[in-house]
Simulated assay, not measured.
Amino acid sequence: MLTLDKIYHAAYVLKNVARKTDLIYAQKLRPDARIYLKTENLQVTGSFKVRGAYCKMAELSEEEKQKGVIACSAGNHAQGVALAAQKGNIPAMICIPEGAPISKVEATKKYGAQVVLVKGAYDDAYQKALELQKETGRTFIHPFDDDEVIAGQGTIGLEILDQLPDVDAVIVPVGGGGLIAGVAYAIKSLNPHCKVYGVQSAGAPSMFNAVKHGHMEELKSVATIADGIAVKKPGDITYELCKKYVDDIVTVTDDEVSSAILALIEEQKLIAEGAGAVAVAAALFNKVDVVGKRVVCLVSGGNIDVNILSRVITRGLLKAGRTANFTIALTDKPGELQRVSTIVADLGANVVAVHHDRADENMAVNACFLKLTMETRDHEQVEEIRKALVEAGYEVTEIH
């Protein structure tokens, strides 16, 4: 059974292991609300997961420690277990989906854990870990559906109330539900008036569906850039705690998550992975009511692969109207490119790529498609450029 005493005990166990991460006021994200960021992306291992993993492993008997532990993870729990194992001199084997970011896999190996890559998603790694647990007799360290693990994650709730006693709402990422279960239990036990909202990816809404429909459901597949919360089925314990203590669960799209990652980089100089940015995405895109309120967005992790980060930034720029791709039909004659470039420049945009397409069979022999990629200010400027080109007699066939 999860109790407040367990969470306080977890805080004591973690005091020399996990950081009490900063709570940062983020004025630029939403001028109409007081948004604070709980920066678990700056935690040791780059994620909150070390809290629950360490608390669980601190409770193991000497015999269990000698036999070792086994876990499954999309990457962050893996690092938490690996670090705890390193500190306790415990052998660790961790099953990770083969599609997990390389940076997370390599970081886990550096802590000394044995990594087993498994085809498929998190749930496939979970099944493999259960098989290996039976074969080896190791103790299974569940990433979310365990009271000790949940208590460890709940220490974040204690810290938030200590850092911002008059908080109105806390927005928390949700995968299997261990983080929000612990945070919601701690906050509702000490401040019942504070709202607790969960956020899932629209491509992996397992807890969202379970709570909305009133029963557990397993998704057939998941697809999201937020790999840390790409879970097909929530936990039994976490589901019950979410039903009781969480006010609402919402979803965000990958485009919204990309925009949130970009906003955190530009406005707050913080790197968040997809799962770590979903709470900020919910606040930015009005998925929960934050206007005029003191709201904490829990940035749960920052372990994003740099290759993925590059793609996410590009997607975020497109979503925000900061980059635009125009396809313009025009007559292929001298001076046309200069005329178009002048229109774009006069409106303050910057052309970064140009491509002439003369091979399309649907256009006239003396025509071409001019494809421009531009750096723009926002969607309003993109529309200004479109109108100016049309008024100058050009046909804009596509904008994206």
Rank of each mutant, 00 (worst) to 15 (best):
R358E: 15
D378L: 08
R311A: 10
H379N: 11
T376M: 10
D378W: 06
G348V: 06
A329W: 03
S310A: 15
D346N: 15
S341R: 07
Q381A: 03
V351T: 14
Q381H: 05
V295L: 03
D357Q: 10
L347W: 08
D332I: 09
D289E: 11
S310G: 10
A353L: 11
A345H: 10
D346S: 06
V354P: 02
R294A: 12
D305L: 00
R315H: 09
T342D: 12
E375S: 13
K293C: 04
F326W: 02
R311P: 03
R339I: 03
R339V: 05
H355E: 07
H379L: 12
T376D: 07
V344W: 01
F326R: 00
V352W: 13
N303A: 01
A324H: 01
V382L: 08
T373P: 04
I343C: 02
T331I: 03
V354F: 00
T331N: 02
L370P: 13
L337D: 04
N350D: 14
V306P: 15
V312I: 14
V351S: 08
K293G: 03
T323R: 11
R294F: 09
N325A: 12
D360V: 14
V299P: 00
I328V: 13
A353P: 05
N303D: 01
T331L: 05
R358I: 13
R315N: 05
A345Y: 15
T314E: 07
L309F: 09
V382P: 06
T327W: 02
F369P: 02
R377M: 13
D346W: 14
T323Y: 12
A349C: 09
Q381K: 04
A359C: 15
Q381L: 03
K371M: 06
E375W: 07
